[in-house]
Design a protein around this nucleic acid. Structure first.
Lengths: 144, 144
DNA sequence: CAAAAAACGAAAATGATTTTCAATTTCAAA
DNA sequence: TTTGAAATTGAAAATCATTTTCGTTTTTTG
């Protein structure tokens, strides 16, 4: 899996943000994570690379990355405070309940459903959000 | 639309919870709401019926209703702190971006997608969550 | 290298939620 | 009914995540 981090840093720079050690540490942590991380988890992980990092910078950087649509919140039972890299184009999430690993997939077969709903309820449909959860092959093999 | 409140109160009682004025006020507020309410909104609304109500009781009652699967959190841009009644059986949500009104619909045409994903990624699929948003007919008619 | 602007982290402030606790209410048994 | 144990209450305190403030440091441009 190629790292997204260099591209993210370029995009931050292209939008007028400076490249700092704090941002590099946060970006590298989030861009390469196979699972959703909370701000605190990002902080703890990124501090291994850059111990002077402050939690505030994690929040600030996550907000920038959100604005640039490079990360997305993941919605889970207990809340929606964890962030994942956002894949190109329209994609949905498949998340392992046990280990948290996320897969991305295209699911464009929803169009017919939208047309039907638009007719039935008179809604102008603007957005949708589909998230699937289960057990990844490795966790399934381990039982539970 | 029939009120869910009596049934909810019965279910609370059936699970050993007592029926109190605080619970009645919260249950009637949430059970009859056409849109998702935050704990604070529940508090403000329910206090019109029962002014002595404390915010703490709102949180406690919402937690009970969650455990009994009578309410669900709604996931939105800014967070997922708002609650809606949960409909019978498996249902998805269609929510108006403007006024917040929620419609419930069945969407069981996702089975083929799940089978495909299970094969492709080796996942044991356990749950899914589909939420659609847009403008309801009334809000759409008002422009924006 | 110097200067201006941006960004930093620590600490304080805020806001939502949870816990604690003494007083009140509910409900089953008498 | 009445009664009393247990559940529940709301106020206040505590906690936890997030945001704001602010003096200092870092980055970038010239």
């Amino acid at each position: 899996m190629p790292s997204n981090a260099p591209s993210w840093l370029e995009q931050l720079q292209a939008h007028g943000y400076r490249l700092t050690e704090a941002r590099r540490a946060v970006v590298e942590t989030v861009a390469n994570s196979p699972r959703a991380l909370t701000p605190l988890e990002v902080y703890e992980t990124a501090r291994r690379r850059y111990p002077a990092l402050g939690l505030v910078s994690v929040y600030r950087t996550l907000e920038m990355l959100s604005e640039l649509h490079l990360v997305q919140r993941v919605h889970q039972e207990d809340g929606c405070n964890a962030y994942l890299p956002r894949a190109e184009g329209h994609q949905h999430l498949l998340i392992c309940e046990r280990c948290g690993r996320a897969e991305y997939f295209q699911g464009d077969d929803l169009e017919t459903l939208f047309v039907q709903l638009a007719q039935q309820y008179g809604y102008q449909i603007r957005a949708h959000w589909l998230q699937i959860s289960g057990l990844c092959p490795r966790c399934y093999a381990q039982g539970l």
